[in-house]
Amino acid sequence: MTQVTEASYPTKALQKFLTCLNGASNPLILDLGPVVGSNVTFFGEQLGCRIRVEDVAADIDRHVKEGRLEQLPAFFASRFTQDAGSVDGILCWDILDYLDRPAAQELATALCRLLKADGCLLGLFSTAETSDQVYTKYVVVDESTLRYRTYPALRPRQRSLLNGDIIKLFKDLRVSDSFLMKSKLREMLFRKPAPRA
């Protein structure tokens, strides 16, 4: 049976993500989770930013429902219409945990393309196998606390990604910070290096 829960956990990477974007003027953030009104308010007030919500979990569920999971890699290759290098920050949350390798790679490649030089990406990765078929809404309580609120998913998490696998997925980015949290999540912050002159 699907367990739907809600609990608060500390975060370290969120503060780093905010610091990374603090100097940007009217930055653009891409949020790959479902819309969370209080998060929109939080990031808007903290950063004076533009936020584009692109619910990738809904994309996955739609593909499951239509029996077209094998088309996810091709879908992600053309999913985002923003210009290359136009996004300052990406809230990837834990969505890559729900994808198999080809789809995860296409999504990661698309995100790397969208990110500006010096832009940052926040990703969460499960370190424990679980059979719960739920997605998690990450609700920002403050810059050091996230509330994890689960809701039913049509697909469980896939195999946990190892650190090396994650780094390979985002080969065009560099790992800025990585935190192993007691919530059994690895929080990782990636930065896109400026092109060499």
């Binding site: 500390p10 370290k12 050091s144």
Partner: peptide
Amino acid sequence: VDMQRSGVKPAAKPAVPGQPQPQGQKVG
């Protein structure tokens, strides 16, 4: 959503004693 910044931007606050603290361990 574009929330044009109005007024002074709140600075990133350090953690406040008594609030939940991060329990993670930096490994990277």
